[in-house]
Amino acid sequence: MAAAGWLALPAAAWATICFLLPLAILFATSFQSGDGAPFGVFARIFGDSYYRDVIANTVVYASVVTFACLAIGYPFALALVRLPGWLQALGMIAILLPLTASAIVKTFGWTILLRTTGLVNKLLMAIGAIDAPIRILFTLPGLYLGTINMLLPFMILPIFAVMRRIDPTLLDAAATLRSGPVDRFLRVTLPLSLPGAFAGFSIVFSLASSAYVIPTLLIGERHKVLSKVIAHNFLVANDPALGAGLAVVLLIFCTSMIALAARFGRARKES
């Protein structure tokens, strides 16, 4: 047992140096406000409507993206798990292949697709949704479209992984007990796949609320989210205390949402 404990030492050292120590520095920096008050930075953040708006923007952005990914990703994963072998492999390639390209490259790709002469406008015109090209690039709908597309695999993959492990005989058993397809989904598939949905929710929510490259390239300065304001305070305004304070707010906000999702998941499992 003791030997096994020693084996964990490198990993523990890594976690301490790379995660715990920077976190401690971050928290310490956030308490170093110029006016001497230990919570001075937080009073500044929550007392200023500009920072409150930035926090609200981040919450709305991350929430819309996460729920949209869930709404698209869950049925996608359900369909994927029921596809025959080669089609399922094809579906998996379609999800995994974009993950091999960097977020910067994909986001630049979206800046081309979203132009007035881009594919999105052409598709909308082809299906008769619009008569003339509309402006999507550097707008909120364009931001949401690009972000949802880029984060969707992180929702589909955990749901798919959990759904694959659901014993198909359970559905057969439910059918023999005269349970209809909707009933089977609601009473068997949905409850058993919820851990995957909660995992996907946590991952996508964390990625969306801390996204920096995607909102920077797809909408620019006119939509402020916490990640951009944090970077500005560290890199340009030279106000590390405020930057660290905002990072602590983002961290607490993300951790609370993930904890809430995990708690909800556990409650569902127990019930």
Binding site: T116, T117, R135, L137, G220, E221
Partner: peptide, 20 residues
């Protein structure tokens, strides 16, 4: 009137050239 508040000149040149 704003399409973009820019930080880099390369992006501006490209958006103007394409007519965006």
């Amino acid at each position: 009137n704003l399409l973009l508040i820019y930080n880099g000149s390369a992006q501006v040149a490209n958006l103007i050239e394409t007519g965006e």
